[in-house]
Amino acid sequence: MKIALDHVVKTFNTFRAVHDVSLTVESGELVALLGPSGSGKTTLLRMVAGLEFPDDGHILFGGEDATLIPVRERGVGFVFQHYALFPHMTVADNIAFGMRTARAAKRSRAEISARVAELLRLVQLDGLGDRFPAQISGGQRQRVALARALAVDPKVLLLDEPFGALDANVRRDLRRWLREIHAELGITTLFVTHDQEEALDLADRVVILHQGKIVQQGTPRAVTRTPNSAFVMRFLGDTHRISARAQGGRVELGALTLDAPDVADGPAEIYVRPADLEWTRSGPGLAATVTRVIDRPGARRLQVLAGGDVLELDVAPEVEVAEGEAGQLRIVRSRIFAAS
């Protein structure tokens, strides 16, 4: 089911949570809504679900206007941030809940328990149907919540910070697993996260929100390689900022000259990531002094002082370098924006 948001606005009291957002999610796509807290991503998801209603604009499901259809008629599966499992029901009863409502298609007891068993198998929880939510782990609860949402055969799957409350290892496993389930079921999926790694790792397309607006959207490759603003650049990962001046489509930095064709003359900011810098003892570059060396499993991270800025970069584990040593930095790639 294709979802389209058309100039959607939502205000709480005086706070503009969502500010004129238009977005299309293609049928079968897996899309991440990524943003810092307060960026309106959860509000947007809740409006798609029908748990909130926009003040202005439209939400289309397929070609149909779903803006004012309440959640129980919208045909979405929603996985809540803290799972919202019914604590007094067993895992199996939780999953069966949506199949036993008055509006659900009538099914026999045997059909329901067969479907529950099938879903338990899908989320790899066979044999845990008789447990109560308090008796299983966080990762297992997360999977029960997903099975429960899938039980009503939703046209769209919505997940609010699906892995937020879990520890790092469980998160990584669940991410891979969710990707597999999505590939298997092909259901249009929209999830909210504040974790860049999670969004880039899982989604076909990432939509980045800031202060209630979409600032950039695209494939993980597009948003990471060509961030369109300093905000996106900084938000997606470790970034260093170097102040400079742009003049005639170029930026001069020490002995280096960088191309900046789209930047207006005047103060500019060069953004680089640790992986965008290289360390050389001599040769043209930005003069720098090593202030600290941190040894990590895959690389050695250098903290260097260059023209008043503290920068970080990684070098191969074999590179011999000591604190206090002077050398040159080469900027392999960078993004340059006019200073704001």
């Binding site: 959640v71 008629e73 803290h82 809940f97 949506g98 409502t101 429960r148």
Partner: peptide, 15 residues
């Protein structure tokens, strides 16, 4: 009582 429990019920189609 977590309000999300009621929202979960609604999203699963319960009256």
């Amino acid at each position: 009582l977590d309000p999300a429990l009621e929202e979960a019920g609604q999203s699963l189609g319960a009256s």
